[in-house]
Design a protein around this nucleic acid. Structure first.
Ligand code: ZN
Ligand code: ZN
Ligand code: ZN
Ligand code: ZN
Lengths: 170, 170
DNA sequence: ACAATTTAAGTTATACTATAACAAAACATA
DNA sequence: TATGTTTTGTTATAGTATAACTTAAATTGT
């Protein structure tokens, strides 16, 4: 079996994920002379509280707790900024947002989303990209933006899913 | 140049597209002993008025004109049925729906969506599917549902886009 | 044909997601 | 410090989708 991405490793050191994400964000914004304001950094940190996509409205209570305004525009503005900087991606099929594990080079992710635990992996996916580009090129279509979102069962949940089906059968 | 799908052929006989879509729908529903009621058939016909994805709320006025109830649940129920029968697909990135040009065998489309004219092609896309399946299999992820939506410029609009950029430059 | 059951449609209300528009505050630059 | 720019606060509203219950129509079995 190949090495699993951290998203699919329940016991991994997630504090490290958070720390690295924030560190990369600070570095990138600094390089680009973009302002990673307290609200923006907090939203990024909240997005990284897990490897599960979060809806914008799920972030509002935490923003309020931290003493910020927590009307929808606040969180959407922060998310817009983070998306523009490539620090988070939007998952269209879930109306939700997830942190990008390798921000920097502009890219659009290819996401594997577990319908049971919600844990989501962002693939590099060169073969997928190539296949799409070839198909598009064949029709003379010029690609500007790609959305690739795959829902299913992660390795961990296949086990629990089998277990619960078995329990039902008993 | 390869043969373009009808979606990207402005002058094609679209009445034929509509007629074929309705014919296939009647046949499939009949075979499956599913009821293609007047509302459902009308919604399918409205969806097929073009090759552009349409939002649910864009269908409501036409439903009212035809003398049906036109509250949101009416159109969403019809769309749910049509999706379940594989007669229409939902485009998650647009919150919109489009007719399936080859209903019957269960499948999830790979869509090329023109951001200028909205015309949308559903590809067969075996290579794309394979690439996704390989990547997923490599991680032990079991696929249940795929969303592949590509936004860009269709061959026709590349021309007009170039023209308008040129006009701006003058 | 009739009653019982299932499926679909009508209706009202509401949840969820996202943005418009304008005012106030903070920041950057000179 | 004065000036222009960017960010945040605030209120309102647009856009998308579903819950819950009622009525009507179609299907099934007798
Ligand atoms: Zn982690
Ligand atoms: Zn990414
Ligand atoms: Zn057509
Ligand atoms: Zn299709």
């Amino acid at each position: 079996m190949s090495k699993q991405p951290l998203s699919f490793q329940p016991g991994h050191n997630h504090d490290r994920c958070i720390h690295e994400a924030l560190h990369k964000a600070r570095t990138l914004c600094s390089e680009r002379k973009q302002r990673l304001t307290p609200i923006r950094e907090l939203v990024l940190q909240l997005i990284w509280q897990s490897h599960k996509p979060l809806g914008a409205y799920e972030l509002l209570p935490a923003l309020a707790d931290a003493g910020f305004n927590s009307a929808p525009p606040t969180v959407y503005r922060a998310l817009d900024f983070l998306q523009a900087q490539g620090l988070v991606h939007r998952i269209a099929s879930l109306n939700a947002f997830i942190g990008c594990p390798h921000p920097g080079p502009a890219h659009q992710g290819c996401f594997l989303i577990c319908r049971s635990c919600s844990c989501t992996v962002e693939l590099e996916s060169a073969p997928v990209q190539n296949a799409i580009h070839n198909s598009a090129a064949h029709l003379g279509f010029v690609i500007e933006q790609e959305t690739v979102e795959v829902v299913g069962l992660c390795p961990n949940c296949q086990q629990s899913d089998a277990n619960s089906l078995q329990r039902e059968a008993e």
